[in-house]
């Protein structure tokens, strides 16, 4: 989960952990990319904010999609702006879902479950 808002990270993480998910957090796209590179186990899903310091959510998605190892990791974007341009850009980059803040925790959970229940693409 990538977001520069600590409260969002804490609460969403707690909520997802309660449902049995392992959550790793990062405060911006740059740190997230570093964590993804260094992780021993591949990530199953990335939930990211758009506007963050150093590297935005869109930059993160675009880097992931260009990388052969990570291009199949599903991404959910959470943004405080539901602006048509942002939504369009997100889907053009290849994100799997888009949520506008404020979010309903249950809705996030449903969308996470839905994406994770899809058959995984084996890239190896």
């Amino acid at each position: 989960m990538v977001d520069d808002d600590d409260l969002m990270l804490k609460i969403a993480t707690k909520f997802l952990q309660k449902e049995g998910y392992d959550v790793i957090v990062a405060g911006n796209g740059r740190d997230a990319m570093k964590i993804i590179h260094e992780a021993s186990v591949p990530f199953e899903l990335i939930i990211s904010d758009v506007i963050m310091p150093y590297s935005s959510g869109f930059e993160l998605v675009s880097t992931l999609k260009k990388h052969s190892l990570y291009c199949n990791i599903p991404v959910i974007i959470i943004s405080s702006s539901g602006n048509e341009t942002i939504v369009k850009e997100a889907y053009q980059l290849g994100v799997d879902d888009f949520l506008k803040k404020p979010i309903m925790p249950q809705e996030l959970l449903v969308r996470v479950k839905k994406i994770l229940s899809r058959p995984q693409v084996n890239i190896s």
């Binding site: 808002d5 409260l7 404020p102 979010i103 309903m104 249950q106």
Partner: peptide
């Protein structure tokens, strides 16, 4: 106030 900015629904 911060909570209200991020979340909505029954919890809010």
């Amino acid at each position: 106030m911060h909570y209200k900015k991020i979340f909505f629904g029954d919890a809010v």
